[in-house]
Design a binder for these strands. Sequence first.
RNA 1: UGGCCCAUGGUGUAAUCGGCAACACUACUGAUUUUGGUUCAGUCAUUCUAGGUUCGAGUCCUAGUGGGCCAACCA
Length: 562
Amino acid sequence: MSDKGKSLNFIEHIIEEDLRNGFPDHLLRFRFPPEPNGYLHIGHASSICLNFGLGLRYDAPVNLRFDDTNPTKEEQEYVDAIKKDVEWLGFSWDKECYASDYFQQLYDWAEALITDGKAYVDSQNSGDIAAQKGTPTEAGTNSPYRDRPVEENLELFRKMKEGAFEEGAHVLRAKIDMASPNMLMRDPVMYRILHRAHHRTNTDWCIYPLYDWTHGESDYIEQVSHSLCTLEFGPHRELYDWFLDQVTASDKVRPKQREFARRNLSHTVVSKRKLLQLVEQGHVNGWDDPRMPTISGLRRRGCTPAALRSFAETIGIAKRENVVDVALLDHHMREDLNKITPRVMAVLDPVRVIITNYPKEGEEWVQAENNPEDPNSGHRELPFSGELFIEREDFREEANRKFFRLKLGGEVRLKNAYIIKAESVKKDREGEILEIHCTYDPKSRSGSGTPESLRKVKGTLHWVSARHAIRGEVRLYDRLFSDPTPDGHKEKNFLDFINPDSLMTVTAIMEPGLKDAKPGERYQFQRLGYFCVDSDSTEGHLVFNRTVTLRDTWAKIELKQV
RNA sequence: UGGCCCAUGGUGUAAUCGGCAACACUACUGAUUUUGGUUCAGUCAUUCUAGGUUCGAGUCCUAGUGGGCCAACCA
């Protein structure tokens, strides 16, 4: 990484300390361990950048490990989507791993634990087991099966594995301490019976290990040195260490679990359950709807991997509760998009301009910079004529001097073309403006070098020649929720805060060169924002998604005037 | 009637051994600009509270306050 001079986050401090204490840097190894039961979201992006970022910083391998121990929820579809997202973010994993690859090893270790008297088969139902757990303030009570003889445990466990029992008939539990102040240490369940096909092991197994028994041992098998997870796993650390104690050899790396606070983004939710609800109840059009905070949604909206990475870098990592302002994400998207996107002109809410002193059927071509931020981006030719479209909100019959745009009797520069002056308007019976009649200064053409062309006029507008224009669908997205913390209200459901105007679709007028735009391509529509060609586009029907607007100082001025 | 974690501007994150509270975003000023974009300059903090240790505390100690997590055969 290029951040050697940067201050360290608390995880890096821990690693630096381990290194100082003699941990060999070539044994550093990390992992990103998603469960393939849903799509990755921006919170995962942060975790991906953390783990893979550490890999880059310390030149250490990072595994992509699927935590696939629950066949009732997990599917291959999610595995594929997750791999695509991680790759798209720009990271390469060392090994592609699956917890399910370790089922046999885990099983063998479980038998050893039983033999050691450290695990037993409990034949109660889940309700009874839960009842015996006690509460955070009261000790639990021992299961009547807790002192089952080793031989009987072994026999039952083997039969569980062979499929001799119904789901729920028995579980394997670690024998730890039913009075522990940490509820996770009260004889946690290690295996349950599930007669379900697994997306990788199919029907090979009918007992499946639970998270706590699986995760640390998987880290150990892969020789992960630092296993990073979110804060809610803090209490699990004691159990993680206990399970590791049962198997760790002295000459192997003993993985270290550390916890960080998940990143929350304002004006959205990042919980798989809630995202699923948005999809299933049709509040959005799927997991990759551009309003979704999923990586696939952000990608479809036009966000770049670089923007997501620099965003993750900026928000950092710590242990306190947080809500990151979505405006910061917007900033990082604009920062990257400003550098890389070609500028084009498109009018979202058109009104017709007639230049009365322009030759009737005349037309000419003007030159436009493709990207002022990129000197190598070159220029393109744009058709100009006496009949144009401009943005309806760029004209007012009357306005004060703060309004830099077109008004009756006022002048304005048409970007890359001429200075025009509004003379009169034509309206329909309802008073809606149909045409703005203007005159132009023929000597004011951009780049011509004439004194007239060098005149300073306050406003510059984007425009499209009516005769040459093409049309396209533009989807204007806004934040999905109107409240900064939609799921932070005890009394109200997060769905109550859904922004009814999160999607507005318009037909826009666009410069003709856009007709060959391909899905995934990003543009800046000048003075409007950044837009990305959507995958819904078909031959002859272009669809653009608005990624993010440009910063809009005028909108703020206007707001204050009201 | 318990255990664990956390507390620094509006937001997020820094601050070496205890030594001038820093960076980014937002907001607001101003300059530049043929995008009201970009760029540039500037403004915005009693480090949760109260004690204590110290020449010196965001940092260490004690107590309090506030917040989060823990009783899935989920991860």
